[in-house]
Amino acid sequence: MRADRPRGWRLVGRYTVLGVVAAVVLFPIYAVLLQALKSGPDALDHPSSLLPTHLTLDTITTAWTDGNLGRMMLNSMLVSLLVTAGVMLTSLLSAYAFAFLRFPGRGVLFVFFVATMLVPAEVTVVINRRTADSLGWLNSYQGLVVPALASTFGMLLVRQMFLTLPKELHEAASLDGVGHLRFLWEVAAPLSRPTLGALGLFTFLGTWNAYLWPSQVITDEAHKTIQIGLEDLKTPGDISRFNLITGGLVIAALPIFVMLVLFQRQLVRGLTAGAVKG
């Protein structure tokens, strides 16, 4: 018997605690979801708004059309996919250099990389906005994507994973004449799949959810991402349209929720593979 497997009443107690806690954590999501699935008046009739009756997709569809959310979702999707692919690429390359190559100045460069992680966006945003401006990147996809393409977090995560691979693999490959890129694609990357999956998921999530930087570089409707666009649904004063925003919230969070449900285990496994081992 495992030391931590309870039985009988303790089991019931444990499920009860888990259930109550889950209910509390999920309550905000549940309340907003139900409001989004009701017509305006029903949504505001509390506490019956919390009962799953009189459900309709009207609010969500209205939010979708009125808020121009389709366009924003596409923007968010495009930007998040590009950034995720880019970050995985740059992280793989820099992690490989730090994990497998020996060159003078490696330690100094590594410290440089890590130090950049400590610089908060708040410090860089003002100047970066000007840089984007002078490049003509305001209100453009480049402006949203390019500055996010290098990730020290990603480099560290992948490097940590690479360091757990047996050294002999790399030595055997170098004796067999395997080039660096081939080793990276054919050996190191496939063996680091869980870590890369976690990195990809986190990067996608972070980009999808980014707020400060998009709010600074994007002002036009054509390039707005969903996160900064949602606010437009927050029309003060007009109570009848109030729950439109709940429809917008559901739409904005849905893709990420689906990803989370599908990949929750991989996320934890990917982090366990590299991060925990000092």
């Binding site: 905000p28 707020y211 996160q227 925003i245 929720f257």
Partner: peptide
């Protein structure tokens, strides 16, 4: 339960803030 507890990762700061704004 694990998915439930990690679910707020899916809500961005913007989404979470607006959720609470609504509530």
């Amino acid at each position: 339960f694990r998915t439930a507890f990690s679910s707020t990762v899916a809500t961005s700061v913007a989404v979470a803030s607006l959720v609470w704004f609504v509530l």
